[in-house]
């Protein structure tokens, strides 16, 4: 099952590369550098989803004390941190040629940095507590609280003046992109989502085996 997921993710990533480089046009204003979007935007969408999963699984753990919910939250947070890191790295590489800087402290970049640090803190917290049940309980509380960051990141570009531009797609009204760019984005999002599922499935299984070996 997990293996099938892995192969699906690999195929979808190949399709995504094809969409990004062969199907999507060279963007009129920015040129080829705009293609970084096909990694940058799917990464952050998957990171959002990953942290929503942490939020839901943390509530489920607090309500039921089911270890499976805790393992899901743990795995999803790890993969979410990975994709947030990828978002920051690709955004930085995109920012240098277009904006003229690798980094600036505007509300969008700052709120993403806070998001990243909070979930790194979540993983640190888990690692610092030896007793499994207590680690799971504390982590679940943080997993619920840290989700506050997700709307903050999304709306930062609307609530404050920023260097980062407002959303092109995730907004009311028509999108500010031609359909071919939207399609390329969605294919890459699907590919990244499959990769996320593959990583989480692997990590959940490992965490379960570790738990069984430790018990």
């Amino acid at each position: 099952m997990t293996r099938v997921l892995g192969w699906l993710a690999a195929l979808a990533l190949l399709a995504g590369l094809g969409m990004a480089f062969a199907v999507a046009p060279r963007e009129a204003t920015q040129g080829t550098v705009q293609r970084i979007m096909y990694v940058h935007v799917p990464s952050v969408w998957v990171a959002y989803c990953a942290f929503v999963v942490v939020f839901v699984a943390s509530i489920a753990y607090l309500a039921t004390r089911a270890e499976a919910a805790d393992r899901l939250a743990h795995a999803s947070a790890e993969v979410g941190v990975l994709f947030t890191g990828l978002t920051i790295a690709t955004g930085s590489i995109w920012g240098k040629p277009t904006w003229g800087t690798w980094w600036t402290w505007d509300a969008r970049l700052t709120s993403v940095a806070v998001l990243f640090v909070m979930y790194v803190g979540y993983l640190l917290l888990r690692g610092m507590i030896d007793e499994g049940e207590r680690a799971a309980r504390y982590a679940a509380v943080l997993g619920v609280v840290a989700a506050l960051n997700i709307p903050l990141v999304h709306f930062s570009v609307l609530w404050w003046r920023t260097l980062h531009q407002p959303p092109s797609l995730m907004k009311p009204g028509p999108s500010s992109m031609p359909p071919v760019i939207v399609r390329a984005l969605l294919v890459n999002f699907a590919a990244f989502a499959l990769l996320y599922l593959y990583f989480v499935a692997k990590r959940v299984r490992l965490l379960r085996l570790e738990g069984e070996a430790g018990a």
Partner: peptide, 21 residues
């Protein structure tokens, strides 16, 4: 320091079909 701010508009070149490749 000069920073360029870009808009959320993305456009295909006029003959979009195979122009990208």
């Amino acid at each position: 320091l000069i920073l360029a701010k870009h808009s959320e508009e993305y456009k295909a070149p006029h003959d979009a079909s195979q122009a990208g490749y």
